[in-house]
Amino acid sequence: MQTVTPSNLFKDQARATAVGRGRGDKKYRIFSYLVLTLIVITITIPFMWMISTSFKPESEILRRNLFPVKPTMDNYSEVITETELPIWYKNSLIVAMICTISVAFFDSLAGFVFAKYQFPGKRFIFIAFLASLMVPTEMLLIPWFIMSSNPPIPVGGTWVDTYWGIAFPGVITAAGIFLMRQFMQGVPDELLDAGRIDGVSEFGLYWRIAVPLSLPAIGALSIFTFLGNWNAFIWPLIATSRSEMFTLPVGIQQFSSEADTPWNLIMTGASLSVLPLMIVVIIFQRYIIEGIALTGLKG
C-alpha cells in the first residue's frame, strides 16, 4: 500500500468524489442530502436535549417540554459550587495530560528506534509490544488492581486513589508506537547521517530532526490519547474510591444514588464534559479525521 501522509489524505477529496457521473447524478445527490440531513438531525438530538435540559429549572425536569420554559443558569452554578465536578474536571485533565505527554514522548521515541535503528532482538521486542494489543484490557484489570494495591514502588502506600494509579496503564501504547514507527520510516536516513557527522547526539537526532518532521502524526496521536483518557471509564472506576480522586465519567456516574437521580445536574455535568472536547475537535478536526483514517488504514 502506498505511503499515506496526513496532508495528502483528504486534500483532493472533493475532486476525487466528483467524478463525472452523468445520468441520475443530480437525483442521487438530492437523495443523499435528504438522507444525510435526516441522520445529522438524529445525531444532534441527544446534544440538543442535553444542553436544553441543563438550562431547565428543577421543576421542569420531569415535564414533557423539549425546551426550558424559564431557562436558568442555576444548574451550572449548583454543579460548580455544590458538587465536586470542578475537582473531577481537574483530575480528568491531569490524568489525560500525564498520558498524553508521556505517550507523545515515549511512543514517538520508541517508534523512532524501531524505524531507524538496527539492533539484536528488535523483531522480538517489536512483536512482543504488538502482541500486547491482543490482550483485552479487561483481562488486565484484576492484575492491575492487585498490583496497585500492593505496588512494587509503594510511594505513599498504594497506587489506589493517586493520579499515577489512574494513569499508569495508558502512559505508553503499543498502537501509538506502531503508528509512529510507520511515520518515522519516512524520515530520510541522509538527514540523520548528516546530523551524526555534525556531532548531533542520538537523542538530538530524535528530538531535533525526527520529531519536527513527524509533528502532524504526533499531534494526531496526542489528540487521540487525550480523548481516550478523558473519556476512560472502567479503569478509573476501579482505581479510584474517594470522590476527590474521581475522573469526570466516574463522577457523573456517581451523581445518581439509590435515593436520587438529579437529572438536571447530570445533564449539566455531561454538557460540561462533552462541550469543550467538541470545540477542540472542531478546531483540530483535520488532524483527528486524518489520524483515524491512518490508524484505520494501517490497522
Binding site: 442535553m50 456516574q253 455531561a270
Partner: peptide, 10 residues
C-alpha cells in the same frame, strides 16, 4: 469524541 458515560445518561 464524547464520553460514553455522559452521553449514555443523556
Amino acid at each position: 469524541v464524547t464520553s460514553t458515560i455522559a452521553i449514555a445518561w443523556v
